[in-house]
Amino acid sequence: MNATREVVVLVADDDDGHARLIEKNLVRAGLHNPVLRFNNGQAVLDFLFLRGPGPHRAHSKAYLLLLDIRMPQVDGVEVLRQIKQDPELKKLPVLMLTTTDDPREVERCHAIGCSSYIVKPVDYEKFAESIKSLGLYISLVEVPEIDRNPGAIAGA
C-alpha cells in the first residue's frame, strides 16, 4: 500500500455552512487534500456503493469520510452502519462530526465502529481546533485502499 497517496476527504453534511467551515479550517490547518462534498446520506452511500447516476468512488484512490449524524432521509448513523457491514468498505476511516455530545449517541457510533467522534462546538476556536487535530489525524492515518475488485457489488 502506498501510504503517501493523496487522500480524498469526503464530507457528508446537509448544512452548506458547516461544510464550508470544515473546508476552510482544513485548509487553514494546512491540509490541501481534495474535498468532495455530499449533502445527504443517500448521496454518499451511492458514491461508496457505486450506485445511481452520480459520481462513484475510484478504486485507485484512498478516502476518508467526515460524517454528520443528523441528515434528512438517511442519517449518519445509518450510513455508518451500512459502511461497517460491508466487508470491503468497513476499512474506510469514518469520523463522526456532530453538534451533540450526547453520551448515548457517542457510544452508539463507537459500537458500530466509527474511527473517531468530533463534536462541532459553537465556540469557533474549539471548532477550528477540532478540525486541526482532525487534519493531523488525516495526515497521519494510513488510509487503506478499498477493494480493487468490487465484483461483489458491481451492477448493483
Partner: peptide, 13 residues
C-alpha cells in the same frame, strides 16, 4: 439540538 446547528454557522461565519 437543531438550534445549535444554525448557531455553528452564525458563530463560525
Amino acid at each position: 439540538h437543531d438550534l445549535r446547528s444554525p448557531l455553528v454557522n452564525i458563530q463560525g461565519f
